[in-house]
Amino acid sequence: MLKTRIIPCLDVKDGRTVKGVNFVDLRDAGDPVALAKIYDEQGADELCFLDITASHEGRGTMLDVVSRTAEQCFMPLTVGGGVRSAANLVELLRAGADKVAINSAAVANPGVISECAAKAGSQAVVVAIDARKSGDSWEIFTHGGRKPTGINAVEFAAEVERRGAGEILLTSMDKDGTKSGYDIPLLKAIRAAVDIPIVASGGAGKASDLAPAVLEGGANAVLAASIFHFGEVSLADARAALAAAGAPVRPFEPQKVK
């Protein structure tokens, strides 16, 4: 049986993690590669880097971070932020990413989704949707959640699937940062519209918030940042809470290659 993926997410700017990170035993909490390694050792099912670098020069730095992570962590790696074209996607995949998340560019020019899927296969193409409740529906926001688009999130989700996206990374702008749990109605609405996997994001505040996203919302993976970075919830806690609620998780025990 396919297991629920638990995905720690790191915001990276100019090659350094930006959201506060508070790990005991970590000399440089700003180094995304060192953090990735810790999550790898703790049995994260996947890692996500979101590049929030504004400058053009920063892109090369991100490629280096991805490459150094992939040298040490033998696990799936999703990278998003500033991806505009199939060429951007290819350079991230070459550096060691397995999937690339497209956000603003997918909204501005949905054709980029099919272009990317044709180039690298649907399994490599994630569309990141940032949605906020607006009346009876949800509206898409871009540019880190700052720019409203007037686009209906549920209709857009169905469109990105048609265009070849292999996964949706769904962030609730209403829930993000509130630590009050994932946005279950939003997840359910998107789940009803698409057959591709959905990663739930925004709102995780405690281990018991994870299971409802899967069992009620229909998410296939749960992504969180601060609860993991501040050690409020360990990956072992997250696995235990999901399993106790009835969401299947991967058994994990650290062992060495013989």
Binding site: M1, D195, P197, P251
Partner: peptide, 28 residues
């Protein structure tokens, strides 16, 4: 069940193959 089949899944071994040795209990 979404397609792509994406994520960690368990293996049921049908052969005692040299490449599949030492994978531990319930390998994913």
């Amino acid at each position: 069940l979404p397609v792509p089949h994406m994520g960690w899944n368990g293996l049921q071994l049908h052969q005692d193959h040299p490449v599949l040795q030492g994978l531990g209990e319930d390998p994913h």
